[in-house]
Every structure is written in C-alpha cells, then in structure tokens.
C-alpha cells in the first residue's frame, strides 16, 4: 500500500536559518499522524512546506505516491487543505462566511454553490444563521468551525491541522476536537496534526513524531506514549511537564 503522504529528507532553510534539518516520515491513508514539539521545533514548518508556503531546500514530498514539484497545482489544493492555528487571524476581516466559502468554489469552478455552502455549514455544526455573518460576529470556536468548513468544501483527502484548538478555551476545544474526529470518520480523511499538547495528540492520533530543533526525536505509537514507553529523555520531559506542576521536583537553581 502506498503511503498517503510520504516525506523524505525534508530540509527547509529560511534566510540562512535551518528550520528543518532532514525529516522523514510516512502517513498511511486514513491515518491520523501527530507532530509534537515545542516552539521552534519545526513542526509547523513541515505543514507549511507540504502546503507550499515554506522554501524547501531539499528532500521530497509525495502525496499518494506522486512526487510534488516545486509548484503546487490546483489539483493539489483539492487533495490537501489546511486549518490554521489562530481562528482570529485565518478569516478575512471584511468578508462574510458566505463569501469565504464561495471563494474556493469560484477558484476551482465548482458548481452548486448554494448547496455546497449549506452542506459545509451543516457539517461543521453551524446552521444557515451563520452564513452571512462577518468573522467579528463569531466566537473563536465558531470561527474555527468556519475555517474547517472552508477546508472541507473542496473535498480534500488530507487535512493539515496546525494546533487547531490551542487558541480556544478547554470546553470549546473539546467540541472542535470531537468535530474533527467525527469528520475524519465520516469522510475517511487523513490527518496530519501539529500540537504542543501531548494529551491532544494522544487523543486524536494513532502515531506521532516528537520533534526538537528541526529534527525528529522519536517516532511512537500512541499506545506506547500512553504507557510511558518512550526512549528519549526529551520525550520523557515533555510527558512529565504535561502532567502539571509538581512542587517537590523544584528545578535546579
């Protein structure tokens, strides 16, 4: 079986700074794969490189066995879509939800706009009452739902999720995570999800890769992580940190 997404020796250099130093991994069709790391670890850079938003210095990216060239074509964007971290920044401030959802349809010349928009809004749990609102009339969770609807309206097979809930409150986060899971189940999507929160990744993914300063630290199954079967001290530190503050383990002076 060919991998849905295959990344080989990916390097990204921004103005002389090596953001990714040769990273490889495969994501199987229908799988949800997590990328974990702290800021500057390069996890978001991977998503951007796949989406064609980061300068790739070397390495290859293949979608469904087909190697991507230097430029992404329109067909690529119908297969791969992305949901951004900050729902306050990812929606155009002067466009209504309707206009936001119309745009991808117009770009790809898809018909039945009315029906598709209605369907997309229903799918993310926003009724038609939200269709003509501007983004400032929406809460953070609703904005993120609109962003998800926008990504889904082109019927992609791969969804890149860049910390989709880190800007949301805990209760709203749960709702959005549930929605993402439900959509994946229904549409048989492949997820590549980035998060700094191990708990979210274990909840959403089957496998994950831990990253640090542009390099892969280790690859794990979620069950291994849940059982604390990790080999690298960095991962162990992350696990410990995510358990909360512990007054007894005062950090060294």
């Amino acid at each position: 079986m060919t991998a849905m997404l295959s990344i080989e020796g990916l390097k990204v250099i921004y103005h002389g700074f090596s953001a990714l130093k040769g990273v490889s991994f495969d994501v199987e069709p229908g799988e949800s794969f997590g990328l974990v790391g702290e800021s500057g670890s390069g996890k978001t850079t991977i998503l951007r490189a796949i989406a064609g938003l980061a300068p790739i210095a070397s390495g290859t990216i293949a979608v469904n066995g087909k190697r991507l060239g230097a430029r992404r074509d329109k067909a690529f964007y119908r297969r791969v879509q992305m949901v951004f971290q900050d729902p306050y920044g990812s929606l155009h401030p002067r466009q209504t939800v309707d206009r936001l959802l119309q745009e991808p349809l117009a770009i790809h010349g898809l018909g039945q706009g009315e029906q598709r928009i209605q369907q997309a809004l229903d799918e993310v749990g926003l009724g038609s009452g939200f269709r003509f609102r501007y983004s400032h009339q929406l809460s953070g969770g609703q904005r993120q739902r609109v962003a998800i609807a926008r990504a889904l309206i082109l019927e992609p097979t791969i969804l890149l999720l860049d910390e989709p809930t880190s800007a949301l409150d805990a209760s709203v986060q749960a709702e959005v995570l549930n929605l993402l899971e439900e959509i994946r189940g229904r549409r048989k999507l492949t997820y590549l999800m980035v998060s700094h929160d191990l708990a979210i990744i274990t909840h959403m993914c089957e496998r994950l890769m831990v990253m640090q300063s542009g390099e892969a630290v280790e690859n794990l199954d979620v069950s291994q992580l849940a059982a604390h079967q990790v080999t690298r001290s960095y991962t162990r530190n992350l696990l410990k940190a995510s358990a909360g503050f512990d007054r007894r383990t005062r950090l060294r002076p």
């Binding site: 964007y77 951004f84 900050d86 990812s90 155009h92």
Partner: peptide, 11 residues
Amino acid sequence: DYIKAVQLMGA
C-alpha cells in the same frame, strides 16, 4: 493567515 488560506485554496 487569511491570505495564506486563500493561497491554499489555489488562488
């Protein structure tokens, strides 16, 4: 991000 999002639509 909203311009990136439109780029990602293939605009």
